[in-house]
Amino acid sequence: MFKFTSCLLFATAFVATVGLAGPGARAADKTLTVYTYESFTSEWGPGPKVKEAFEKTCGCSVNFVSVADGVALLSRLKLEGAATKADVVLGLDTNLTTEAKSTGLFDASGVDVSALKVPGDYKDDVFVPYDYGHFAVIYDTQTIKNPPQSMKDLVEGDPSQKIVIEDPRTSTPGLGLLLWVKSVYGDKAPEAWAKLKKRVLTVTPGWSEAYGLFTKGEAPMVLSYTTSPAYHMVAENSDRYQAAAFSEGHYIQIEVAGLLKNAPDKALARDFLKFMVTPGFQDTIPTNNWMMPVSETSQPLPDAFGKLVNPSKTFLMSSEEVAENRKAWIDEWLAAMSMN
């Protein structure tokens, strides 16, 4: 049965869809293609401002290609392989860098990172950090009057006060918590998880779902970043949500960027990485990416940032250690969390 009219309709819609995809190349002579994650390029993210600032100095045009998150970035690179059109990849975190390096797609950054103020002593000649954030338990001050003061408090606390956490298999904060518990408890991590399980309301696929549940009041605690309260204080004028400072220390997530071997204009890419650690870029980090800058910003940070938890100790495992042990540690976590 051939429906000629519907074939026609389909063809029209088809053409419209392809047309909407938009042409890939923009105008201008030099183009820098930056692969990054979606929240970076959204209109409140740092992306638009970074683009504007860089384009002023480079005489080029910046083309952002955004994917869901840091993990998707790596997957996308692996999929594209050497044919990738990326010049710069921005948004991986330190847990992913070993794997990223093993793709063989990245080249030395040529940027001196020694002057950067990143807790945890991160040093790498391929990847350049551009922001960081410590993971922290965020709690609702209206419900919880005595927040946990340490990881031990969290693990052994009152089971009726629940926390929402993320799944380490599908999200970076989830993996971050796993590594944090591992850093604090070492070999005793499974027992710690078994205890913590009683307080876990649910394990969500990603940060969005967890935070959504938290703000809806389903649980009074959630695993997020020390900078989360800053958003509520600055954008919503509310200090209802605060971070709990843990005495053992906090695990850190450092976000990095790198340039690709096959980038047609490596000098331009390198310029971008250098630009990344200058105020022109770093200014956008606090109130657009809601993370901590790695170097000087032209203005001091907003007041709200002064009220944030500033961890005394920072946990950071090397990328190689994480890559080696991740599967085993996740299995351990699964076993502990699946017990009834």
Partner: peptide, 27 residues
Amino acid sequence: ALFGSDSFVTLPWLVYSRMGSYRTNDA
């Protein structure tokens, strides 16, 4: 989610992206 890029945004993608930027109200 796999192919997403700036020039190709759908409504659900928009919802998720708001949620990922603390903007649950917008979402």
